[in-house]
């Protein structure tokens, strides 16, 4: 299975390269969480990796 991996224009920012794709603030994104599943993440501030209940981060 080949997934699309579009070439990007090196002279444009990611937002400019696709007018339909403008990043939204996290508060505007809808969380898709089937149940109370545990996410395994690496914390962007500490770099420490482990299980994090989605609820601890708040609903997106």
């Amino acid at each position: 299975m080949m997934l699309k991996d579009k070439k990007t224009n090196s002279d444009t920012s990611p937002n400019k390269s696709d007018s339909k794709f403008k990043l939204m603030d996290l508060k505007e994104l809808k969380s898709l969480d089937k149940n109370d599943s545990t996410a395994f993440v690496c914390d962007v501030n500490t770099g420490i990796c482990g299980p994090v209940k989605q609820e601890k981060e708040g609903k997106l």
Partner: peptide, 16 residues
């Protein structure tokens, strides 16, 4: 807040 972080169609978020 954590990676990996997935955004689908710029509307839906999946963390971890």
């Amino acid at each position: 807040q954590g990676v990996p972080f997935f955004v689908i169609n710029n509307k839906y978020a999946v963390s971890g």
